[in-house]
Design a protein around this nucleic acid. Sequence first.
DNA 1: TGTGCAAATGCGAATCATTCCCATTTGGAA
DNA 2: TTCCAAATGGGAATGATTCGCATTTGCACA
Lengths: 142, 142
Amino acid sequence: MDPENRFDEMLKSGNLKSTKHRIAILEVLKGNKIPLSAEDIYIRLKQNNISISLSTVYRVLETLHEKDIVSKVNIPDSNRAVYELHGNEHRHHLLCVKCRKLLAIDGCPLEEYEKLLEDRFGFTVKGHNLEVYGYCNNCAGY
Amino acid sequence: MDPENRFDEMLKSGNLKSTKHRIAILEVLKGNKIPLSAEDIYIRLKQNNISISLSTVYRVLETLHEKDIVSKVNIPDSNRAVYELHGNEHRHHLLCVKCRKLLAIDGCPLEEYEKLLEDRFGFTVKGHNLEVYGYCNNCAGY
DNA sequence: TGTGCAAATGCGAATCATTCCCATTTGGAA
DNA sequence: TTCCAAATGGGAATGATTCGCATTTGCACA
């Protein structure tokens, strides 16, 4: 199945209309291994001569995030969020505080921990945010 | 040792001058088990007839955070930060997305995981942010 | 294949936590 | 007590994100 049809399916399964902007944003995300900010996406779309408003980029990302099509990553010590198409499994990232590079980590160490918290606190866990930061191997010497 | 002297010590050990505002902020934090936002602290100080500027509250919190006297907690899905006096060990929180209550969790499940990441990615881990969210036992039924 | 209407979008203004600027005040070393 | 770097006040600036509202568009149904 070609990518655009796959995106159509994803949108339909979330009861979302399939619009050229949503497809275009999904395509930008698909073309990047690194999570992108709303503005990054906006700029890439402009470069591809796609006319869109920054508000729309935010709205689309928010919508796609609600439908679990896109995941939202909060950058530590910053008020920026970045977004990525997620496969089915959720993941976390390593942020280099020097070069600001983000590395994706597959898997998540918190599954049993969440169960423990549910037992201990009578809490119904819906999710978590985890970002790990430090120095990447290029920046390790400071 | 009385609390004020203890705060003096904490400030001195971070090469910080001991000012009445810093002491007052530390006292507010000490009097609250729940992490407070800069504005929460500002309001409490005003209620105690302490004249202070909101900028100063932010600056003091930032400084105390840098010196590891206070820890900063980012609230998921919000651009607010809250602060608490931390004992020596770091901790995480459970956020109820309905009533917005924060529950402190003692301990941290990520110590070995960080070592694993260092080995796997050649990354020097400096820290992490982890917040878990869901429904507390009062809000569990939605 | 047209029609209608809810959903999506554009665009600029508004929000809101936080930071910045710079003039004034203050802690504490000497 | 003096003096200077550090701390503070207060208001403006920032910057990411959201909101309001008029306009456009996807698509279900006729």
